[in-house]
Design a protein around this nucleic acid. Structure first.
Length: 198
DNA sequence: GTTCTAGAAC
DNA sequence: GTTCTAGAAC
């Protein structure tokens, strides 16, 4: 039996309703139109800077086609996903001196498929809590190449379950570059500075 | 996604 | 008393 949510509206069957355009989950669609954040575009994608970057460099490659998330991705999108990864690799290549990770969040908060292209320093004032950290340093972060492989092998994108995602987010803090276990977020943020190039 | 803040942790 | 985390936001 499905759990009843406080958002359920009696007598309306609780069909999926589109979110109002002012809702925070629609934020990416607005940012895509803001020249201040647009890095580049082509026929298929828009590349923007993340409004709240979680590292020194943090870009998002977003398809112009209205694809809400990975669950809506099918084999017909294979070429698009390959193109997104290629564009992401190009953006990364334009910022030599940093190593990049290119992938998707298993359970994104924002509407519209978006590929993260993020430098691995994780040094940013916007990275504030455990959820931020674990969303990029555990398997909650699914590499683009794995998403593409999954689509090729299975005809759809196989993702971690809701329970697995919850476990990823509850993973104790750990440095992504060494074996250090920080005691809390401020400690972790200080520690990662020791891995920066001098 | 972020902001705010109560109460836990120190 | 201050720092830090984690859950609500109508």
């Amino acid at each position: 039996m499905p759990k009843r949510s406080s958002k359920d509206v009696p007598g309306q069957g609780n069909a999926k309703k589109p979110k109002p355009s002012g809702h925070w989950a629609m934020g990416l669609l607005n940012t895509m139109k803001d020249p201040k954040y647009i890095v580049k575009t082509d026929d298929l994608v828009t590349v923007i800077k993340d409004v709240y970057p979680k590292a020194k460099f943090h870009f998002l490659v977003i398809p112009k086609e209205d694809i809400s998330n990975l669950k809506a991705v099918t084999s017909k999108h294979l070429d698009l996903l390959k193109h997104m990864e290629k564009v992401g690799g190009e953006i990364a290549g334009e910022n030599k001196g940093s190593n990049f990770k290119i992938g998707y969040h298993a359970e994104p908060s924002m509407i519209r498929l978006h590929l993260h292209v993020i430098s691995d320093d994780m040094d940013s004032v916007c990275l504030k809590n455990k959820k931020h950290w674990n969303s990029f340093t555990t398997d909650f972060f699914v590499k683009s190449e794995e998403v593409i492989k999954s689509l090729e092998d299975n005809g759809k994108v196989v993702l971690p379950s809701k329970e697995e995602c919850k476990k990823f987010m509850e993973t104790p803090l750990k440095c992504h570059k060494c074996s250090v276990i920080p005691k809390n977020m401020p400690d972790l943020k200080k520690h990662i500075l020791t891995h920066l190039e001098k």
